[in-house]
């Protein structure tokens, strides 16, 4: 096993993640400690001036969003396939280049289909 791998690089990434989480917690905790807290019914209302809400405030979204999310998953996976190709690109030569072109071309068909079907539009 490659000890040098997580002896250096991954520890840095781990420290970064921990620092990000710690910063978030620290700011929230500081806010709770320092900020004055005087809750009242008027402050808890969604709008301080305006009509009280009468319907559920959580709107439902159109399925269009979901299509975009699914397209995102598919093209995300396509991007994943490009990474190992990119790191060995020099060794693969023209053959690997054409292989990736074929891959992209086939997926581009799907992209054009989605485009022409209006899956990427909101109007």
């Amino acid at each position: 096993m490659n000890t040098q791998l997580y002896g250096s690089d991954w520890v840095v990434i781990g420290i970064l993640i921990l620092a990000a989480a710690a910063l978030g917690y620290a700011l929230l905790t500081l806010n709770q400690i320092i900020a004055p807290s005087k809750p009242s019914a008027a402050k808890a209302a969604p709008y301080e001036s305006g009509v009280p809400e009468v319907v559920a405030t959580k709107p439902r979204f159109t399925p269009r969003f979901y299509v975009v999310a699914m397209l995102f998953v598919v093209f995300d996976i396509e991007a994943i396939f490009i990474f190992p190709w990119a790191v060995v690109f020099d060794g693969l030569g023209l053959y690997g280049f054409l292989a990736m072109l074929a891959f992209m071309f086939l997926l581009f068909d799907g992209f054009i289909y989605a485009w022409k079907k209006g899956a990427l539009e909101w109007a």
Binding site: L71, E78, F103, M104, L106, G110, Y113
Partner: peptide
């Protein structure tokens, strides 16, 4: 290459079924 075909089918299926 077959994977790219599968992904294309996924794109088309998502649009046909959900749009």
């Amino acid at each position: 290459i077959v994977v790219s075909l599968v992904l294309t089918v996924a794109v088309i299926g998502a649009i046909v079924l959900a749009l």
